[in-house]
Design a protein around this nucleic acid. Structure first.
Lengths: 113, 113
DNA sequence: CCAGGACATCGACGGTTGTCAATGCGTCGT
DNA sequence: ACGACGCATTGACAACCGTCGATGTCCTGG
């Protein structure tokens, strides 16, 4: 894996309701949204947030009721999308929300103002 | 199609960063996000918004560069997700954003405040 | 009534995705 | 040094998704 497909920041730029999205921007935003568009990953995000902003895989496997490899896979998707960060400390890998990443997505979707 | 899987309003309820999402809420929100997590559908949304809030299929087919059945399919997905509305007037079918639907999604994702 | 246009639906096909069991890799006690 | 633990990676498989061409349906104009 060459990490060639790193998304820019997260869901950069365009307000979505002001001007027609370019094909490239649409693809970039879609990649971020696709990372969120899964019940398991949404639960992982909210579990991490409710767990004090940080949690290791072992904290998450049981609540979501899936196998450890599957949870690891989902967390990797979230990290690759720039929504979460991974910090390996000793034997444990701590996952945390990237501050502002979700808000950036929300801002693109907002049509108010 | 029995329209059995109508999503509640759109992406109801839970703030996502306050409490752990229930499995049901996660599934509901994921369904809405999945409707948005496609480059073509994002462009359709922004095209409709930039087109004065309303557009017919014939206005959208050429800008996205896809076949008419494909565009119709994507629009149906957006309508089923509660993000767009369809109004058939004569021969044409006019699609419009459901006011507040995108903002509801954005509000769930926001972690500020 | 008939021809044509706008849109929806159907059937099919390739690519992607979510899941698991099995396995590999570091790290910590003992 | 060795075994146990936490996590990542791999390979496989079923289910789903985006796309198209072909066809069906409804409205309009002549």
């Amino acid at each position: 894996m060459t990490a060639v497909d790193l998304p820019p920041p997260a869901a950069c730029c365009t307000p979505l309701h002001r001007e027609a999205l370019s094909a490239a921007d649409a693809q970039s935003l879609a990649r971020t949204l696709k990372a969120l568009a899964d019940p398991t990953r949404l639960r992982l995000v909210s579990l991490v947030a409710a767990h004090g902003g940080e949690a290791c895989v072992c904290d998450l496997t049981e609540p979501v009721g899936l196998s450890q490899p599957t949870v690891s896979h989902h967390l990797k998707v979230l990290v690759d999308a720039g929504l979460m960060s991974r910090d390996k400390r000793g034997v444990w890998a701590y996952y945390a929300l990237v501050p502002g990443a979700l808000d950036a997505v929300a801002r693109v979707l907002t049509t108010e103002g």
